[in-house]
Amino acid sequence: MRAMVFASRNAKEMTRDPLNLFFGLAFPLALLVLFSAINSAIPPEANNPMFEPAKMAPGVAMFGTTFMALYSGMLLAKDRTSSFLSRLFTSPMRSSDFILGYTLPAVAFAATQAVGTFAVAAFLGLPISLKTLLAVVSLMPIALMFIGIGLLCGSAMNDKAVSGVCGALLCNVAGWLSGVWIPIDLIGGAFRSVCRALPFYHAAETARLAISGEFLGMIPHMLVVIAYSAVAYVAAVLVFRSRMHSDKA
């Protein structure tokens, strides 16, 4: 129950921040509308499907989950530096209550954001079916990875450093190396190798294959994402627990 009480508090902190709402909900939708406008401007004879809703919406939805690192990291860092966490460390809350309390609202936020992105994509021409729901679910492991990275940074850095690392740096790296904005196969070489070694491209591919109904093709990409998510999340839990039992909370 304590985890749910804390999760409820964190959900309110996240959703009552106007910047969170803008970057979490409005920004991905604005991107989607922008790409739709670009798609409309491309003549059919160009035969370029890159900006079609079925291609673009999964990538934009994946990109939206990067902001979960920023939200969870900023919230934890602010709680640490304001002594709010010190107050709660003396309460009967256990480390699992804290971890769940920070994670659950961010997962709910990520799911809401993905649903919103696909709903707007539907208005722009994306067919909606059970595959869309699968795409939303397929994005949750990468969301969990970003939450883990956020908690890791929030445990170790102040809120200004978290905004730099999880905001400017991570969002850009995840965006550019996911193949959402630029086709990595066209560039090829080392860039493609780096993209394929990291989870962002695989997360976007998982959602795209879910939308197109290529379920078997999803599995290898999904496994890469789950492996990265497990490492990031376990590291976050270990660092948070060590902070909780040290004098550096």
């Binding site: 304590r2 508090r9 309110k12 304001s82 002594s83 107050r87 309460s91």
Partner: peptide
């Protein structure tokens, strides 16, 4: 036990009522 730390350790985006309810429920 309970503590009031040196910094005003309150949840900034929660109302006064919500802060109090949250602490009571945590205990």
């Amino acid at each position: 036990i309970n503590i009031s730390p040196q910094e005003t350790a309150v949840a900034p985006n929660l109302s006064v009522w919500e802060n109090l309810i949250m602490m009571a429920r945590i205990y």
